[in-house]
């Protein structure tokens, strides 16, 4: 699959995802913005395993920008634009607080995990791949490690309230 085919597939998936979270117009605008970034700024990224995660990262940023714009424009509470403060492009305290709260929730959720899940999470933070974790845990099948990790992820996201946000 070449880069154009990848971008074409990405456009469909991004539009569908954005449409599920935003309005159709905002979803199309968001998709166009993401592809524009990939085309203009990351034109040298051609490999699938690099282009797709990059597309997810750009998509997330654009989603957050869209929410901030909508909030700033009063699309959620219908406030006057004149009453809203001017936008700050740097990390504002609200963003910092949001990240801090997410980190605290994540720490609290990890503390409630079981021993195996914490070990798995620790080894993943140490950068160990699933095959390496399989060896560490002495499992003959890597699917066992996949299954354990999937259960631990679901348990963790449940402990965080059903979302990583």
């Amino acid at each position: 699959m070449d880069r154009d085919q990848t971008l074409h597939a990405l456009r469909e998936r991004i539009l569908a995802f954005a449409t599920s979270r935003l309005s159709r117009d905002q979803a199309e605008d968001l998709t166009q913005d993401v592809l524009a970034v990939l085309h203009d700024k990351y034109s040298d990224v051609t490999e699938l395993i690099e282009l797709v995660p990059l597309a997810f990262q750009v998509l997330r940023y654009k989603m957050l920008d869209t929410h901030r714009k909508s909030l700033r424009r009063g699309e959620y509470n219908q406030e006057s634009v004149e009453d809203l403060p001017l936008a700050d492009t740097s990390n504002n305290p609200m963003t910092q607080l949001d990240q801090k709260q997410r980190v605290d929730r994540l720490l609290s959720a990890i503390a409630q995990l079981g021993e195996r899940c914490r070990k798995l999470f620790t080894w993943k933070l140490e950068g160990k791949s699933f095959p390496e974790i399989q060896k560490i845990m002495g499992q003959s099948s890597i699917n066992t490690i996949y299954t354990w990790d999937l259960r631990c992820r679901k348990q963790l996201i449940d402990l965080m309230g059903g979302s990583w946000e």
Partner: peptide, 30 residues
């Protein structure tokens, strides 16, 4: 079963082969 690789995606511990398989499938699986 590719959903099981999501944990490795967040921690960036997937191997190149796992990433190739996961991302290629994700382009066709909404």
């Amino acid at each position: 079963d590719l959903e099981k690789l999501l944990g490795g995606f967040a921690a960036e511990t997937l191997t190149a082969e796992e990433k190739e398989q996961l991302y290629r499938t994700a382009l066709h699986d909404q």
